[in-house]
């Protein structure tokens, strides 16, 4: 979900009989739930898929700081401001864990970041929506981080060791994000004015569908899923993850006293799940292609941050060299 539509470059999943001895040993290791580590042999397509998936995941964490950064200077209290900054710092940290995991596959961090800046690499569609009112900070924490948790909890069991370990670290930290988000909304609904309560509903109305889209296209339209599932870089299908998220979120929505912008959303006794209405996939593909409300702004903000920070990185190297020189002289 933080990684959507990850290409595997594989048209059809090979059977064990069709594999070379190396490929077969690799697949059997995965089937036995033994983690793949950086120095193990792996098929090139597995390596490239993981680089795409992990870099996309990392980019999402980094770009994900921007919608929240929008509210740091406008948080309603000092306490909320500190919480928001702590959350944003966590997102930066999550990006770093993931870039490190990606580098163990031989990818270069700068090169992958360049791909983000040139529009070649994707990041989660959700971060291309604007955060228009303070309740959006609550809704992002609750819905967006909530959806992220559903996905990431499953990814803790992903087959690549460094990715799995990064996910375990990230999951430990994410639940703070979701709880602080929900608490923002709960406070507004319980103690807010009518205008503030309306802001909560407005935020949910705007972010509900984009949050559901985070899990990626329906299984029928996920050509890469079969290979990703066989490699266990993906552990549950998009639709199953989405359903799990909806099932756990609707009771929380009702507790808030809010509604979802979906007239078809209702409990299905027979299935034991909530039914929900059709998702506007055209919107999803448009946003992913770069035509969401904030795509251009997000990428140009990231680019500017890297460019404006160049002197800091140069200064750090100069300072390190100077310090080394002093040490050598002493």
């Amino acid at each position: 979900m933080y990684a959507q539509l990850v290409e595997t470059g594989v048209k059809r999943v090979k059977s064990l009989e069709e594999m070379t001895p190396e490929e077969r040993a690799f697949q059997e290791r995965i089937d036995a739930e033994i983690k793949i580590e950086p120095k193990n042999w792996m098929p090139d397509a597995y390596r490239q898929t993981l680089i795409r998936q992990i870099s996309q995941h990392a980019h999402s964490e980094i770009v994900g700081m921007l919608p929240e950064g929008n509210w740091v200077t406008r948080a309603p209290t000092l306490k909320r401001k500190l919480q928001l900054m702590a959350k944003i710092q966590d997102e930066a940290g999550h990006g770093m864990y993931l870039y490190s995991a990606m580098e163990t596959l031989g990818a270069d961090r700068d090169a992958e970041i360049d791909k983000l800046h040139s529009g070649k690499a994707k990041y989660s569609s959700i971060f291309n929506y604007p955060t228009l009112n303070w309740a959006d900070m609550g809704a992002v924490g609750w819905l967006v981080d909530g959806a992220a948790i559903v996905n990431q909890v499953v990814l803790q069991r992903t087959s690549y060791g460094p990715y799995s370990r990064a996910m375990i670290r990230i999951c430990k930290e994410e639940s703070f994000h979701q709880r602080q988000g929900y608490e923002i909304l709960l406070t507004m609904m319980r103690h807010g004015t009518q205008a503030q309560k309306d802001m909560v509903q407005d935020a949910i109305d705007r972010l509900w569908w984009p949050a559901l889209m985070m899990f990626g296209p329906s299984d029928a339209d996920s050509p890469n899923s079969a290979q990703s599932m066989a490699w266990k870089v993906k552990r549950m299908s998009n639709d199953d993850l989405r359903q799990r998220f909806i099932d756990q979120t609707v009771p929380q929505l009702e507790f808030l006293g809010c509604t979802a912008p979906d007239p078809d959303l209702k409990w299905n006794e027979e299935r034991g799940h909530y039914d929900f209405g059709p998702i506007n996939w055209q919107e999803f593909y448009d946003v992913l292609k770069g035509n969401g409300p904030c795509n251009r702004e997000r990428v140009s903000t990231r680019r500017k941050a890297i460019e404006d920070g160049a002197w800091v990185r140069e200064a750090a190297v100069a300072h390190a060299a100077k310090r080394q020189q002093k040490q050598n002289a002493a």
């Binding site: 370990r165 990064a166 750090a316 190297v317 300072h319 390190a320 080394q324």
Partner: peptide, 10 residues
């Protein structure tokens, strides 16, 4: 995990 830095102190 790992970090990139200009030197050990950083």
């Amino acid at each position: 995990g790992s970090v990139h830095a200009a030197d050990a102190n950083m």
